[in-house]
């Protein structure tokens, strides 16, 4: 395998993605990501130096909204699915020490 994924990398990606992996899962993830990257490295066979990255397939641009208030108070609906709520707000663990 050309791409060796270190424990640090898996640890780091775990922090970025907010995923906590068990030891087995980490080992599996290292293998999977390594082989995926090996496979993806196939793209390096292509010379793309002269090509612009294409994020949108169609040249659509300038899709705008006019600055007019349409939405009213929809709090009841917005909070309907909240796992925890209080005083019309979403409740989360304390964000400050």
């Amino acid at each position: 395998m050309a791409n060796i994924i270190s424990d640090e990398t898996i640890e780091y990606v775990g922090i970025l993605a907010k995923l906590e992996l068990s030891e087995e899962e980490k080992e599996q993830a290292k293998k999977d990501m390594g082989s995926m990257l090996d496979y993806i490295d196939k793209l390096n066979e292509l010379d793309t130096s002269a090509v612009e990255p294409m994020s949108h397939v169609f040249p659509v641009h300038n899709i705008f909204r006019e600055d007019v208030v349409v939405n009213g108070d929809d709090r009841e609906n917005i909070l309907k699915n909240a796992p925890e709520q209080k005083d019309g707000s979403f409740e989360v663990p304390k964000t400050v020490e």
Binding site: L43, N44, T48, V51, E52, P53, M54, S55
Partner: peptide
Amino acid sequence: LKALRTKAL
């Protein structure tokens, strides 16, 4: 970006 360039090709 490499992938987006490949997509263009």
